[in-house]
C-alpha cells in the first residue's frame, strides 16, 4: 500500500509549495511546522476536502491504483470529532461504520467502545454525545477510527484532550495499525508517545516543504 503525493501549492494564501512525499505501508509520517504553516490544510487536502492549486495526490494500492480515495482514507480533524452531538455514542458509531459498509450489531459496537471506557449502558445509549467531556468525545472519535477499514489514517492532533491512559491505548492501536500494513499522516504537538513509531518527518514552513528521515 503506497500513497504518492506530488506537488502542492495553495493559491491565495501560499501555505506549502511543491511538497512531495511518498508514504508506504507501515509508515507513520509526522507533519511538523510552526503555527499557521498549513499542517491542517495539508491533511485536509490529502483527505480531499480542499483542492490543491497545483499538484496531485496519487493513491496506489498494492494491487493497482485506488478507485476512490475515500475508501482508503480515514480523516480525523483537529478541532472537531465529526459526531452527531444530539445522538448517542452507539448510534454515532453505527452510522459511520454503516457508511463504510460494515453492518455492526450493537454488541459489536459496545466491544469497540470497551477499551475507551465508554461501554457503560448509561453512557453509550441515549445519552447525547454533546454532554460528553472533550476527552470522551475524542475517545469516541478514536473508537470510530479503530473500526474503520481504511488503510490510511489522517490524524490531526489525535491525542488532544486525552488523558495518559487513553494516550497509551491510542499508541497501541496506532502501532497495531502500522504493523498490519496501514499508514498514517499525523499532526501532533505531543510527540513523546509516538517517539518509536515515527518513520518520517515533514516540515512545513514558509520555505518549500522538505522531507527528513527520522
Amino acid at each position: 500500500m503506497e500513497i504518492t503525493k506530488l506537488s502542492f501549492a495553495f493559491r491565495h494564501r501560499r501555505l506549502f509549495h511543491n511538497l512531495s512525499l511518498q508514504v508506504g505501508a507501515g509508515e507513520l509520517v509526522h507533519i511538523a511546522g510552526p503555527n499557521g504553516a498549513g499542517k491542517s490544510t495539508f491533511l485536509a487536502t490529502v483527505a480531499g476536502l480542499l483542492t490543491p492549486a497545483a499538484g496531485t495526490v496519487a493513491y496506489q494500492g498494492s494491487d493497482g491504483p485506488i478507485q476512490d480515495r475515500r475508501d482508503a482514507l480515514e480523516y480525523l480533524p483537529a478541532e472537531a470529532n465529526g459526531l452527531y452531538l444530539k445522538m448517542g455514542a452507539t448510534q454515532n458509531l453505527q452510522f459511520w461504520s454503516r457508511l463504510r459498509g460494515l453492518n455492526l450489531s450493537p454488541p459489536e459496537i459496545w466491544t469497540a467502545l470497551t477499551p475507551w471506557n465508554l461501554n457503560h449502558p448509561l453512557l453509550r445509549d441515549g445519552f447525547a454525545v454533546e454532554k460528553f467531556s472533550t476527552g470522551m468525545k475524542r475517545r469516541l472519535a478514536l473508537a470510530r477510527l479503530q473500526l474503520s477499514p481504511a488503510v490510511g489514517w489522517l490524524l490531526d492532533e489525535p491525542v488532544y484532550g486525552l488523558d495518559a491512559e487513553a494516550m497509551t491505548i491510542f499508541t497501541n492501536m496506532l502501532s497495531q495499525h502500522l504493523a498490519k500494513g496501514g499508514f498514517a499522516l499525523m499532526v501532533s504537538h505531543d510527540l513523546l508517545p509516538f517517539a518509536g513509531l515515527i518513520t518520517k518527518t515533514v516540515v512545513i514552513g514558509g520555505k518549500p516543504g522538505t522531507v527528513e528521515a527520522a
Partner: peptide, 17 residues
C-alpha cells in the same frame, strides 16, 4: 444543522458516500 455541528458535514465528504 445536525451535520454542521462538530464538522460532521466535512467528515461525510471524506467518507465513501
Amino acid at each position: 444543522e445536525p451535520d454542521r455541528q462538530d464538522r460532521v458535514f466535512d467528515l461525510m465528504r471524506t467518507y465513501p458516500v
